[in-house]
Design a protein around this nucleic acid. Sequence first.
DNA 1: TATTTCAGGTATACTATTTATACCTAAGGA
DNA 2: TCCTTAGGTATAAATAGTATACCTGAAATA
Lengths: 119, 119
Amino acid sequence: MKSRIETDGYGRKKVIDACMEPCAIERGMRIIGGKWTGSLIYHLKDGPVRFNDLNRMLGGATKKMIDQRLKELEARGMVLRTVINDRPIAVTYELTELGRSAMDILEDLRLWSEKYDIR
Amino acid sequence: MKSRIETDGYGRKKVIDACMEPCAIERGMRIIGGKWTGSLIYHLKDGPVRFNDLNRMLGGATKKMIDQRLKELEARGMVLRTVINDRPIAVTYELTELGRSAMDILEDLRLWSEKYDIR
DNA sequence: TATTTCAGGTATACTATTTATACCTAAGGA
DNA sequence: TCCTTAGGTATAAATAGTATACCTGAAATA
């Protein structure tokens, strides 16, 4: 975020150093701000959860969405997928250290949302 | 976020109290997690900025996106639009108190993004 | 025994959001 | 005169998200 602005005598401003590609905020949001991603991470905060339980916990998200988000997070090393049993298949998802590192942001977001009654 | 989980002897878990509608995290994300919204707010942190300057600062977002996001944020009372001049038209956008209240979250997100080199 | 349920997903079709590109009006500068 | 700037809007195409149904194998229910 290097961009600066200078103002001339007429109140006109000039951008001195625009950020030409997604800045840190934007890059972060693309990860934890994807639809359902934040909720997903947040619901994993207390330890491993199984796929269908996540699905039930996030009323409103489809299995496809959950699946896709979990795969994204796994690919980024934020979530760990473990097959705990095949036949009957059973899988759990849990946060890695990196995944857990986002919890503070999400907790702040939750508090903010509740404080200002965001709907 | 009332949902709880109970585990039986086989590692199977049951959701006791699922959140059936978007929880606080999700509701918050729908506001500041929209594409470009976080960046937009963040770039307003140092005071009023004009439309085309925002457009230049957020390399990658189109005017249409910027316009739409600013209108959303204005409608939520997070941003204030002021016409400082007509003929030649000049408009500035700035954060309200509510808009400013989201800055801590965004600042944390920025630090997180940079610390873990999120791309 | 037959049907339904659950696990963890995938397939298909549809809708909504985002992007790319061009354009608008009025004023000012080269 | 032509080009640029301001603050947007219009149109079409690409991408993302949703709703719904379905798959395999095991186990519980009728």
